[in-house]
Amino acid sequence: MLGKQAFFRHSVFPQAGGMRSVRQNVIRRRGTGLASLWRYLLAGLGLAALLVGVLAVVYLTVPHSAQPVGPDVSRTKKTDNGLYVASFVPERGVVRQGELESWVLTLKTKTGASVERAAIAISGGMPQHNHGLPTSPQATDYLGEGRYRIEGLKFTMSGWWQLRFAISSGAGSDTVLFNVVL
C-alpha cells in the first residue's frame, strides 16, 4: 500500500507533499495567529481537489468516442458537375447492417424535372478500411418520377461507407458520391 505521503508525492498536486512541513514551520514561528490564513489555504486546496474530482467524473462518464466531425451524410446532393440533383434513401426507411437492402435513387434535373431512362453504375467501399463493397448493387427498376430502385446493397460493418453513382441520360453524364455512416 502507498502511504499518504507516497500518494502525495505521486499526486496531481506536486505541492501537497511538502505541505505538512510548511504548515509546521508556520505554526511554530507565528503561533495560532495565522491559523485562519492556513484554513483559507486548505479550503482552497480542498476546492481544487473537488474540482479535479468532478472533472474526473465527467471524463470517466462522458462517452470517449466523441469524434471529429464526420463526412457529409446528406441524402440529397447536387451531382459533381451540377447536372442533376440526386437523393438516395433506403427503400424501407431504415438501414439494417448485414442484410441485402434496396435503396431508391431519385434523379431530377436542375430545373426539377424527373430524369428518365438514366444509365446508373454504382461503386463504393469503406475509405477507412481500404475495401470496396461486399456486393455489386445495381439499378434494377425504374419506379417513375425519376426514382430508381438500387438493389443488392449490403452494409456488413459499422463505419463510414461511400457510394458513387455514375449517371448518364439525355441531360449528360455526371457523378455523385453519398456517404453512409453506420
Binding site: S11, V12, A16, L42, A49, L50, G53, A56, L60
Partner: peptide, 19 residues
C-alpha cells in the same frame, strides 16, 4: 481539517483509479 483533506485526496484517488 486534516481528515477532510485526506478524505478529499482519497476521493480523487478513487475517482482517478476507477473503482
Amino acid at each position: 481539517m486534516r481528515r477532510l483533506f485526506c478524505f478529499l485526496a482519497l476521493t480523487v484517488a478513487v475517482l482517478l483509479g476507477g473503482c
